[in-house]
């Protein structure tokens, strides 16, 4: 079955942060993410040793996370990931900060926040997620890899 009935989808409504609409596989963490010093911008990997995703790549994923923490080099670290071709495809997050706002803007990845349900409760790693930054909508297909 390639077409799933629409009631299999979970729709969350929030505020668009960066415009654009894209879909991809979710990578979810309940822990905030450090930019500079926490990720390897050349490979798109989380390297913070204390982080639950340490060693995992966010390249081409829809990154679902509580928010940004740590150094002010957050935007530059993710900006570098963009020019290295290993940035996340989209961002879904809860806590607005200057770090994550600027990072999302310069990565130019569709991004949504302030959702009506906590995306960390709804979305699991591996879910297929469509992020519509123009309208502030996140559409989740559970445990499916597309179509």
């Amino acid at each position: 079955m390639t077409d799933r009935p629409s009631n299999d989808k979970i729709i969350l409504h929030g505020r668009g942060v960066v415009d654009g609409c894209i879909e991809g596989e979710a990578l979810v963490t309940k822990e905030t993410i450090s930019g500079w010093g926490g990720v390897d911008s050349m490979t798109g990997t989380i390297v913070e040793t204390r982080h639950e995703l340490c060693g995992q790549s966010f390249a081409g994923k829809v990154l679902v996370f509580p928010g940004a923490k740590g150094s002010s080099g957050w935007s530059a670290a993710f900006h570098m990931a963009r020019i290295a071709g290993v940035a996340p495809k989209a961002l879904v997050f809860n806590e607005m900060t200057t770090k994550v706002a600027l990072g999302a803007v310069v990565m130019r990845t569709p991004s949504v926040t302030e959702l009506d349900q906590d995306p960390l409760d709804v979305i699991e790693t591996g879910d297929w997620v469509k992020v519509d930054g123009d309208n502030g909508i996140v559409e989740i297909t559970k445990g499916a890899k597309g179509g």
Binding site: S72, G73, S75, A76, T98, L102, V105, V106
Partner: peptide, 8 residues
Amino acid sequence: SNTEGRES
């Protein structure tokens, strides 16, 4: 001040 980034 907020924690600005390199671009801002």
